[in-house]
Design a protein around this nucleic acid. Structure first.
Length: 566
RNA sequence: GCGCCCAUGGCUCAAUUGGAUAGAGCAUCUGACUACGGAUCAGAAGGUUGAGGGUUCGAAUCCUUCUGGGCGCGCCA
């Protein structure tokens, strides 16, 4: 169901039938014809700029052209009225009966025409580091995008490209050799920062760690044994937190370590194609092009110490993914500080001829900052772990609940906290930095996750009181009802846009706007009161039902859960 | 130095990617049917979209110059 597409196609089809203009509809003009939903709802349900685009080629005034187009557009089925406004916009209003028919059918399934195969790369957690605020966006945005793509019928494969094979491993092992084995994951999480700090001050220590890294990668059994004992602890912690965050299980946890098995194969290909160069003891791939105006350093394939680099892992991963998935595109969701890195990797891939049929795309998002514009830290100057952040939000929910005298289960409180944290992240445009303000995340009024859940819970609560809903008699729609229904009709277009733009925030903002309309409707249109006529009642119940239908789908796509009560 | 990204009411964000009167939330002020669940709703106030110039029927959006901020620029991942 996509009424937007339906109307769009009908209008374009009609225009092509008009003898006076059909010869002027060049591909360029057709491409520029916009069928839009006007910002000001009073203008109509849809509008088009077609008349304005034809002024030049026809040599007529836009409003005159509009007159002509209107006489044809009127003939489109389900169109109630067509009018001209402003400089020559054509505004179209759809028949109420058609809106109701479409919505009440309850079919909100997408009608994706071209289904794609997409590899997704997000998460990319590091062994030895607790998941912290810096992992929030890649996780939440990646996961939601994955859900949207699946919903639209695309085939996705999510990769968690773990950082489990680089120098941090050498640093941890060096630390263990001196201080003994870790007894739990917290020990490990302390080791890496400690060892890393020491390496900054002590060059000998750094060198030692580098050496261990190379030897580990070359199969040193002693190091491998240590490695094999602390890796599961670290992974266990990651998985536990992902579960708490309600993130879909990754299809592949193929990190740098597992991808390393394919590095020799890729290296062979690189050598055969004569792409590798030696430079200062390292092996590199030149990706600079003559037209570049920006700095474009070479891809480091192997460090001069002989260690596998992260670039090698990423390039090899492209090779692996092409072989196993043959995807239409590979999309990476990471911090935008890695923009240059991925540009290099993608160029290298093109040079070697990897994934030639796939679009390689890096979605770089901004940093979560404190109100000072610097990367977010807690008051004591530490980077907060995701677990801690959730606990802080949950505590705030608990406080609010107890103040209001309600009693909610821990499970419900957790769901509300998760919604607060995740929605706050999802609603921001991916590419820009955003300020993480603890006060506004723990304030549950207005544009927040709890507001969204609350809306859904209320709708549920009404529906619980009634049985089967059927609309048999037609009755008029109030403006608040009509606005809501029109907005529901937009759901499919929104999910498609969010998918195409790789921008889950579009869905998040849609969900919020939907809730606003639902709450307005809820207030102005009483349902269960005794003085409400039966036919009005059943129509409103149907509106409630279908609103919840769309809302709960949106909530699910954001990886949130509706509690029983709140 | 070279390059990429950003700049929208006091604060935090939108604007369907060139459309009509730049919309929301927070904070402030005023209200709401004895709450179909008040974590709600209605209203008021708040803007020369960082500055200048350009492109066109039309610019927050595109081009250009400047100002201010963030980030990146071969052996960290």
């Amino acid at each position: 169901m996509n009424i937007y597409k339906e109307i769009s196609n009908s209008i374009i089809g009609k225009l092509k039938e008009i003898p006076e203009i059909k010869d002027y509809l060049t591909p360029q003009i057709l491409n520029n014809i916009a069928i839009e939903i006007p910002k000001v709802r009073d203008f109509g349900d849809f509008s088009t700029n077609a008349a304005m685009l034809l002024t030049k080629s026809l040599g007529k005034k836009p409003r005159d052209i509009a007159e002509l187009l209107v006489s044809y557009i009127k003939e489109i089925p389900n169109v109630e009225t067509v009018s001209i406004a402003g400089p020559g916009f054509i505004n179209i209003k759809i028949k109420d009966t058609h809106i109701k028919e479409t919505i009440f059918s309850g079919n909100f399934n997408p009608d994706t025409e071209k289904k794609q195969k997409i590899d997704l790369d997000y998460g990319g957690y590091n062994v030895g580091k607790t998941l912290h605020i810096g992992h929030l966006r890649t996780t939440v945005v990646g996961d939601t995008f994955n859900r949207i793509a699946k919903f639209l019928g695309h085939t996705t494969k999510s990769y968690n490209h773990m950082g489990d094979w680089g120098r941090p491993m050498g640093l941890i092992i060096a630390w263990i050799l001196e201080n003994g084995m870790p007894s739990n994951v917290d020990d490990i999480n302390r080791m890496y920062p400690a060892s890393s700090a020491r390496a900054k001050e002590d060059p000998a220590w750094l060198e030692k760690a580098q050496k261990i890294t190379v030897e580990l990668q070359n199969g040193n059994p002693e190091y491998k044994k240590i490695y094999d004992t602390f890796i599961p602890m670290s992974l266990g912690q990651v998985n536990q937190l992902l579960k708490r965050l309600n993130i879909l299980t990754f299809d592949e946890n193929k990190g740098e370590r597992l991808i390393a098995e394919y590095v020799p194969t890729v290296e062979k290909i690189l050598e055969e194609k004569n792409i590798l160069e030696h430079s200062d003891g390292a092996e590199i791939i030149t990706v600079k092009q003559d037209t570049d105006t920006e700095p474009m350093p070479p891809v480091m394939w192997k460090s001069s110490a002989g260690a596998q680099t992260y670039a090698a892992a990423d390039l090899t991963a492209i090779y692996y993914r092409e072989k196993t998935d043959n995807p239409d595109s590979i999309v990476y969701f990471t911090d935008n500080r890695q923009t240059l890195h991925f540009k290099q990797i993608f160029r290298a891939a093109r040079l070697v001829g990897f994934a030639e049929n796939a679009e390689l795309q890096h979605i770089g998002f901004g940093t979560i900052t404190g109100s000072d514009g610097k990367p977010f830290k807690t008051r004591d100057g530490n980077v907060p772990s995701l677990d801690d952040m959730l606990n802080i939000v949950a505590e705030s929910v608990r406080k609010r609940v107890s103040e209001s005298g309600k009693k909610l289960s821990d499970e419900t409180i957790e769901k509300i906290a998760l919604a607060a944290l995740k929605f706050n992240d999802l609603m921001h445009d991916v590419k820009s930095d955003y300020i993480f303000d603890v006060d506004s995340v723990t304030n549950f009024e207005g544009r927040t996750g709890p507001y969204i859940l609350y809306t859904a819970v209320r709708l549920n609560s009404i529906l619980k009181k009634v049985g089967e809903i059927s609309v048999t008699q037609d009755c008029d729609l109030l403006p608040e009802e009509r606005d809501l229904l029109m907005f529901l009709l937009d759901f499919n277009r929104v999910t498609e846009t969010a998918f195409e733009k790789r921008a889950p925030y579009i869905l998040a903002n849609y969900a919020y706007d939907l809730c606003k309309l639902i709450n307005t409707f809820y207030h102005t249109c009483p349902i269960m009161r005794d003085d409400i006529e039966e036919k009005v009642k059943s129509q409103r119940l149907m509106i409630v039902k279908q609103s919840l239908n769309v809302l709960s789908k949106s909530i699910e796509l954001m990886g949130l859960e509706i509690p029983e009560e709140m």
